[in-house]
């Protein structure tokens, strides 16, 4: 389903944190939300997930998200928060199963369909082998993937993931991005915030660049991640190359160090 964000603004503590952001995300696409710290990425994502009041219009397909209740929204949009909280010594499988809560009426145990969704999500995040382990005893990277599997198990048309790849080793960063890629290929809409420009350039179909709460630019990585914009938004220079998989972008230095723009 097409996610349409139209002139969205979020005010926190009397200060506008996001303003005038408009963005359309087509199903099957992975859209990377980029921007320096404090640009408003997390705020925009929390507004999308229904956790912050906003002005403007958000629509999923024909549905106005402002009129969707909390329970119904959980069947449309899965949200993976940046903060990784695991409150009790839960088994991995039980934790991932929490993703099925929106689909289970009160008091009904998990159905065969639920179990299949849990298995798929664990396989996709490469945590099947950890299923019987205690989540709080896993490494940080493993915990990140387990929590992501919970959001995947929700099997919603839209997945909003806030910094899912931070703190992961390179192999699992790639696992994570591959999983998001595959979800999009299944026809879901994926919005993911990233700090890693290399991952963003490599795995995202589109980039939305936020700066000071406003949308600085949106489009394919090639056209958005230009030297001028990286200097403008992040204040860095980058080395770039191409291969069969597309753009390879590596930040190199702060702007001005070596005299380049």
């Amino acid at each position: 389903m097409r996610l349409a964000i139209d002139d969205i603004g979020v005010v926190l503590g009397g200060r506008p944190v996001v303003s005038g952001v408009s963005l359309a995300i087509e199903p099957g696409r992975v859209v990377g939300l980029l921007g320096p710290n404090g640009a408003g990425k997390s705020t925009l994502m929390r507004a999308l997930a229904g956790q912050l009041p906003f002005i403007g219009r958000m629509a999923l397909g024909p549905q106005d998200l402002a009129t969707v209740g909390t329970a119904e929204r959980a069947r449309l949009i899965a949200y993976l928060p940046q903060t990784r909280t695991i409150g009790w010594r839960l088994k991995v499988r039980d934790l991932v199963a929490l993703g099925r809560l929106p689909w289970r009426p009160f008091g009904r145990p998990a159905s065969a369909g639920d179990r299949a969704a849990i298995d798929r999500a664990m396989a996709m995040m490469d945590v099947t082998a950890l299923a019987e382990r205690i989540a709080t005893e896993l490494s940080g990277g493993e915990q990140a993937r387990v929590l992501a599997a919970r959001a995947v198990a929700q099997e919603t048309p839209v997945l909003v993931a806030d910094e899912p790849a931070s703190g992961l080793d390179p192999a699992h960063q790639i696992t994570m991005m591959q999983a998001l890629r595959r979800l999009a290929d299944e026809g879901r809409t994926v919005l993911v915030s990233l700090h890693d420009l290399t991952l963003a350039a490599r795995w995202c179909d589109e980039i939305a660049m936020l700066m000071d709460g406003a949308l600085a630019a949106a489009g394919p990585p090639e056209t958005i991640l230009t030297d001028a914009r990286l200097a403008d938004v992040y204040g860095v220079t980058a080395h770039r190359a191409h291969d069969a998989g597309g753009l390879i972008l590596a930040p190199v230095d702060l702007v001005g160090r070596d005299g380049r723009p």
Binding site: A74, I77, L95, L101
Partner: peptide, 13 residues
């Protein structure tokens, strides 16, 4: 168990 943000996204009011 997963924190307030995650709980809300799971449809918890």
């Amino acid at each position: 168990s997963l924190g307030e943000d995650a709980a809300q996204s799971l449809g918890i009011h």
